[in-house]
Design a protein around this nucleic acid. Structure first.
Lengths: 338, 338
DNA sequence: GCTGGCACTCGCGATGACAGAGTGCCAGGC
DNA sequence: GCCTGGCACTCTGTCATCGCGAGTGCCAGC
């Protein structure tokens, strides 16, 4: 077990390194922090911390920098979540309140988060899996061509074209529309399949083919759209990465372009509470020198999606976590209201 | 006027510089290209080209690199558009054919373009300005709450919530829906306002308020959505920029994050034919060291939106132009079919 | 267990020498 | 008049050297 003072030394190292981007030595530490001991003592502590793998020296006789393990300890035991300043709070409200639709909410959120944390922000669209159906609409575009529109409680709209096997009259259409809605409105996506299972049977035989087609398209949409979408922003903050960034930035940009990678990244985050993944804790290689701070957000108690930021392992964890949490909460509220 | 050979020298310089990324000297030129003259002669030609401002030397006694003006001449007079290879053509078809909806088409296009050109791709969503209305749908969500869904011929769907001033019956709703559609379906957005102008008058006085609200929301949607959306991709290709890229890349990433900037950028491109903007020809400062190749695309003869790529001024213009044009054509076809 | 002192290591920046690439110019040849 | 070969010059990039400063590890003493 590490003594109280050693932890204090680690905290000081992390804080200074995050601030200066330069390896921090024993003398500088005692000057900037009131540790109440001499540099020599700090050196001994540092030697221990290095043995334990919490810090490392880039070269012999340079200062120390925290390792991933060091950051981990810092996040878990030494750092709290820094609450936002009230101007920052106000900024969140002002910025998000003007949103007109879901795309807008997500877009604003991503920009806001990037700006607050000065890092790359990722916001997942509210997942359809846990959503409920607000409305299903069927439109007749041509005699044998329908359009299916699905509206969710999170304000998302999906549409699909349907080519019917046979012409489908307006009355049948109205009938199907009404029955469909009475069964699925307010229900969760997951429950829809069994709720509509027997619908075709109640129609005239000539219409059954079309009804089945419509239903299968609907179910397909539900499944397909569970593949979530997301939006990212603030990539220009990557230039803040460090001096050696040409080599670091490439794999990160590449990872950010792969939606699949990002979805997996967010997926790995815990459903509730904040998740911080540091450096090599990230499964994806390209992100081995980055940290990810992610949290779920949702309109009710349940998280419907996640959002977070990606930045250098050398980041201001308390501040970042504070911003991420605050934004997530407020987005949740916005969604609940709309 | 520049002699034939001088132009040939310029072409050789551009080609070599694009290939090697290094200032090209007279000796290297005569070795790699069969100019039929000695290095000394080429030196004289280079001196002239430099006087005219087509090439420059980074430092005294270094090789020459093309200036923006040099690239301009190259593009205008020396380079054709390189047709794609047939594997590339096939790739386009394979890649775009599987698209299921508009988002998907745009998403695939942007990825494809980034991959083909190895540069940053920008694809504008088909503009609603020149689009026509395929269908307008009105749904009643609650007694005094409606949802308006607008479907365009390019497959785009927009929805808006409407809070009615007074409850609105199902019959009135069906009535409004029918009349609205009979008037606007197949019409251009620009024509819609006058087509629906007198609609409220034909309704009962108690419903007029709601009808007006619906109409104004519809018109608002038409206008608002003329602010076009776009999608970008391939930002990791920015790392290919050059050696001095840390300083170049930052403003570019920043510019790419500003949709407004990009829309203006595409807006500056000619409506028909391909537009190439080189270096300082771009109005936006951050893009002064990049070139933009853009072209309109559309489902019919008319361009409904634009797409293009952003890359270093030192880019393979013929190849890039070929790829951009080919992709634009094929996307146009896809849109026309759907 | 903390502290001050001391010798040692190592990275970094400045300096200078050097090779290589490229230029401009000039005199001579076709 | 235009092209060519030759030559002197300039500049960059690289490499080795060197001294400084920061930082460490260890040890003896309190």
């Amino acid at each position: 077990m590490l003594s109280e003072r050693r932890l204090e030394v680690l905290r000081a190292i992390v804080q200074d390194y995050v601030g200066t981007e330069e390896p921090v030595g024993s003398k500088a530490l005692t000057e900037r922090h009131k540790l109440g001991v001499s540099p020599a003592t700090v050196r001994n502590d540092m030697a221990v911390l290095e043995d334990e793998g919490f810090i490392a020296q880039p070269h012999t006789s340079a200062g120390r920098i925290p390792t991933d393990k060091g950051y981990r300890l810092f996040v878990d035991r030494l750092a709290g979540v820094k609450p936002l300043s009230s101007p920052e709070r106000r900024a969140i409200h002002n910025f998000l309140d003007g949103a007109v639709d879901l795309d807008d909410v997500v877009g604003r959120t991503v920009r806001l988060l990037a700006q607050l944390t000065r890092q790359v922000a990722i916001v997942q669209y509210p997942s359809l899996t846990r959503s409920t159906v607000r409305h299903v609409e069927l439109l007749s575009l041509a005699s044998a061509r329908l359009m299916l529109v699905l509206i969710t409680d999170t304000g998302r709209v999906e549409q699909r074209m349907i080519d019917c096997p046979a012409p489908f009259g307006e009355t049948s259409l109205a009938d199907l529309r009404a029955r469909l809605n009475s069964r699925v409105v307010g229900r969760r996506f997951a429950d829809v399949p069994q709720l509509v299972q027997d619908l075709p049977e109640s129609f005239e035989s000539e219409d059954r083919g079309t009804v089945s087609t419509v239903l299968s398209t609907l179910l397909e949409t539900l499944v397909e759209e569970t593949e979530e979408r997301l939006m990212i922003g603030g990539t220009s903050n990557l230039t803040r990465f460090g001096h050696d960034f040409p080599v670091m930035i490439r794999p990160v940009l590449e990872a950010l372009e792969e939606q699949v990678v990002l979805l997996k990244l967010l997926g790995e985050a815990k459903d509730s509470g904040m998740t911080v993944r540091i450096g090599h804790e990230n499964a994806h290689e390209g992100l081995n020198s980055t940290s990810v701070v992610a949290v779920g957000y949702g309109s009710g108690d349940e998280a419907v999606a996640k959002l977070g930021v990606v930045g250098p392992t050398r980041m201001d964890y308390p501040g970042t976590m504070g911003a991420v949490r605050a934004v997530a909460r407020y987005v949740g509220q916005i969604l609940a209201e709309s």
